[in-house]
Design a protein around this nucleic acid. Structure first.
Lengths: 217, 217
DNA sequence: ACCTGAACACCGTTCAAGT
DNA sequence: ACCTGAACACCGTTCAAGT
């Protein structure tokens, strides 16, 4: 039915990756799912690397940063970061996908990066500083989006509890002499953290660092 | 001859990964390099996942965080971060390896994490906050260590210039309307950043964020 | 305890061929 | 332009067997 198109392939690949992990996204598996021969995919993507890139670009395509306005750069940068996090959060495999591609080859990623660069420059950072700072910001956003919040997505609360229990047990069975603080914190470590708290704390941390540095020049 | 031991396998695997990328680290390739049958490796590592874990642990094993002292937590946390970065910097494939393992299964990683947790707690952060904060700190250290500084390692200066030129060209050939700031910053983006500046700036950013948050409570 | 040999079920990719 | 079929060179891993 739905025609076989580069876009449709990327979408199906993301579905598989989100549901079963990126390792399950295989040319052959993907082709089977799409009711087509593996070689058919090679017409739309020259190789797997480009397929990954298509997945990444489609992923970030769900996020259109709002254009510059008159608010202070801090607020705009925070908006950008939170928006990106929300978008990535929708795809459990987002971090995995983004790790495997060259970001410079993904147009939609470049769009976000360019916005971040503009804001960094307007904050008074030098060209070099803005480069590092934006790399760092985007990287952090990806890390924050990949929080252990995923589990709450498609799974039943029993499954969540199951996973948390397993993780807690693993941490508690560690040597309490070697890792006293880890053992002590088994409870929150196991994933019992409020998602909203996680995000605001993470964004505060990143933005706080940037603002502190900006204030020093 | 060097006996075939789990340690020797992990070391050789790291050498391959550093020199040719983690994708080149294959059970069969590794076995050939070690002059042994692929199946021989399965005696020392039950599967590839555990081999990766062995690589990661051996990697971080090169870094022994100094014990707690009487200095303020900021200085100690900075020391820890810089030490970790230096260690990871020695292995170009470090980030790749660490991305593919469950950190909780790597004893040496847990050691560093525990130290970070202790410092976060002593800074006045709550248990939950310390969890998030340390996750974030370690993740950032890994990202900073993976800076585009690697290229200076084993390669000739001509090769470096070659790579930088290629990247610069790629950036400059982007649509200047769509990504004005990226094009404008092609030069530093292409990797022409002072490594020392990169590191101190990165650490300042991360530590600055943490200190700013600590000061607010 | 430590390693080999043969085999299995999978990969990504090429290349010629079909419509 | 878009897709198929057959083939190639690789994977990780199991299992029985050797010393």
């Amino acid at each position: 039915m739905g025609k076989l198109t580069a876009q449709a392939i990327a979408e199906r690949a993301l579905e598989i990756g989100d549901a079963e992990g990126l390792d399950a996204v295989t040319i052959r598996r993907l082709a089977t799912d799409l009711g087509v021969t593996p070689m058919a995919l090679y017409w739309h993507y020259k190789n797997k690397e480009l397929l990954l890139l298509g997945m990444a670009d489609h992923l970030i395509g769900g996020f259109a940063p709002r254009p510059a306005d008159e608010r202070p750069w801090q607020a705009q940068l925070r908006d950008l970061t939170e928006g990106l996090i929300r978008t990535l959060r929708a795809h459990p495999c987002a971090k995995n996908v983004l790790e495997q591609i060259d970001p410079v080859a993904a147009p939609n990623f470049l769009q976000v990066w360019d916005r971040a660069l503009a804001l960094a420059r307007s904050a008074g950072f030098s060209v070099e500083e803005s480069c590092l700072l934006t790399k760092y910001l985007l990287q952090s956003a990806i890390a924050i989006a990949d929080a252990p919040v995923h589990f709450t997505a498609g799974k039943s609360s029993e499954e969540i509890e199951q996973l948390a229990r397993a993780k807690r047990f693993g941490l508690q069975s560690l040597s309490a002499e070697r890792y006293p603080h880890l053992v002590e914190m088994a409870e929150p470590m196991a994933g019992g953290v409020d998602p909203a708290m996680y995000d605001t704390f993470g964004v505060d941390l990143v933005l706080g660092g940037i603002e502190a540095l900006a204030a020093r020049r």
